[in-house]
């Protein structure tokens, strides 16, 4: 059973993504920011890590860069609702940091699941 880590400070969106993936039978863990997430992904290997970018304390870029250093860029999905500028800007930056895929909020759940499946398949 594949394990997925979802990092998002918005509880409901976090829950929504968790639900959408749990329905598909994945084991899903959540964190509300980069700091919590780091505690998790340093001790456990996840098949897919989904992270928001703008978060308090430690943001998504740090997570992405951290994961890149761990060689897990291809298991990382960046999700952003944007901020003062368009979400595309953040996601473009994320792409430059070699994340596997990015999603604009609100996300297309089908596509999201497909991408997760695809990453898991690619690593089997």
């Amino acid at each position: 059973m594949a394990t997925i880590l979802i990092i998002d400070d918005d509880e409901q969106f976090n829950l929504m993504m968790k639900t959408a993936l749990e329905v598909k039978g994945y084991e899903v863990e959540t964190a509300s920011n980069g700091r919590e997430a780091k505690a998790l992904y340093q001790n456990k290997k996840y098949d897919v890590i989904v992270t928001d970018i703008i978060m308090p304390d430690v943001d998504g870029y740090e997570v992405i860069l951290d994961l890149r250093r761990m060689g897990m860029s291809d298991r990382t999905i960046a999700v952003s609702a944007g901020g003062r500028t368009a979400a595309d800007d953040y996601l473009l930056t994320a792409k430059h940091f070699d994340v596997a895929v990015t999603f604009n909020k609100p996300i297309d759940i089908q596509q999201f699941r497909e991408k997760v499946d695809e990453i898991i398949k690619n690593h089997q």
Binding site: D8, D10, Q12, F13, L15, M16, M17, T19, A20, I54, A81, G82, G83, A87, K105, P106, I107, I109
Partner: peptide
């Protein structure tokens, strides 16, 4: 917009 999209995104997702 960030917060709103999160909420709306959650809503749409749900």
């Amino acid at each position: 917009a960030h917060d709103y999209k999160n909420s709306i995104g959650a809503q749409i997702g749900f």
